[in-house]
Design a protein around this nucleic acid. Structure first.
Lengths: 208, 208
DNA sequence: TAGATTGTTAATCGATTAACAATC
DNA sequence: TAGATTGTTAATCGATTAACAATC
């Protein structure tokens, strides 16, 4: 494995460029966009955008900017969005349900192919055409590459342990706890309450 | 208003300390924790933790560490979690519903006091004891301080415009689009698909 | 007191921005 | 060609880490 020459921040921004470029292609009929306009839309320095994009390749045209189509295709390849990724959701409470439905309607390259829970009342039920399975039957042969954890905080580390054993490539955790994940498995955490704490904290601090 | 001496990163970490300390208080019966142990749990340098906490006050005890109770109380005050914040959710699709239920069950200092949508079929329905209101009737007198946007990307900026007019303090946006928000209103964005893109992008890049 | 850990300043590191030669 | 914008390197800025005096 490569050492880590690119920080998480770079991937965060590149995924942002993708979303932005894709949206422009969907909504406008244009050929090119330059780093100055991307800078205006995304509020990032145009130098930073050019440097980030140059990591993907020399995909710009000097004097013109970036072809929107070429830009989208190259970022898509860089982010490995040209293929389908199999995703499992572990924890079929409200949040798990909502994420499942959201992902179905979003029509992305992520396929939620398995649903898990450990509640006997939920196991075997069908949600959006998928049977909820017992998490203890989680297996490599499922071909799951990404796991979305939507279980309570108290059991999230255990769930992560199983995902790690089965060598998923990435884990997205919605439980309000920092999980211990080996560095070769990529990890993201989303905590809505913490986000609200940040908003209320900043707003209070700066209004004093 | 103060200039911005503290970056968003500081607030992100302080909210993390709160979650961690609160969880230890709930689950263990201990008096003190030191920066070295917090460092181990959160994987942040202990110097950074001490510097962050010193922004809140001289709340540690040299030789001993930090009293968990004092630590929690001080962070709670710093983040303005000692009082209830009135929150509105705009967009009562799957995600809006899930967030509402999640927030009710989490028993936090955030009260979801208003629900909005613009779909006539939803307006007037009752969800978790709250009537869904027409967003065009959104009003300052509602006393809403934080808005959670769970509408489609195409209308998110419009919704934000109304929230801005009514001077909410903070906006949390789940729509996959970067919103234009004045700097005196605090803004956070959560995009599940982008998070998956980051995971798959990092995992692919580093496995080459 | 001796041992330990904080609070804080100085040093380092890494990320962003500015500048500009290359080139479409 | 002239004008414009990229791609890239050097300069700057800001965040993190190391070090240590203060002190519980």
């Amino acid at each position: 494995m490569k050492e880590r020459p690119l920080s998480d921040l770079v991937f965060e921004r590149i995924s942002l460029y993708y979303r932005c470029v894709d949206s422009i292609i969907q909504n406008e009929n244009r050929e090119y966009i330059d780093s100055k306009e991307l800078s205006r839309i995304l509020k990032l320095d145009s130098s930073l955008i050019r440097r980030d994009l140059s990591l993907i390749g020399k995909i710009g045209k000097r004097g013109l900017g970036y072809s929107l189509g070429i830009l989208r295709d190259n970022i898509r390849e860089f982010l490995a969005k040209n293929r389908t990724w199999n995703v499992a959701i572990i924890g079929m409470g409200n949040l798990g349900h909502a994420i499942l439905r959201y992902m179905i309607q979003s029509k992305t390259n992520y396929r939620v192919s398995r649903l898990y829970d450990n509640d006997p009342a939920k196991i075997g039920t069908i949600v959006e055409n998928r049977a909820v399975e017992n998490f203890s039957s989680f297996d490599v042969s499922n071909n799951i590459e990404l796991g979305i954890i939507t279980v309570p905080a108290s059991v999230a580390q255990n769930v992560a342990g199983t995902l790690i054993e089965h060598k998923v490539k990435g884990i997205m955790n919605f439980a309000p706890v920092r999980l211990n994940i080996p560095t070769d498995i990529y990890y993201r955490e989303i905590d809505v309450i913490r986000e609200l704490d940040i908003l209320s904290g900043m707003s209070t601090y700066y209004s004093l």
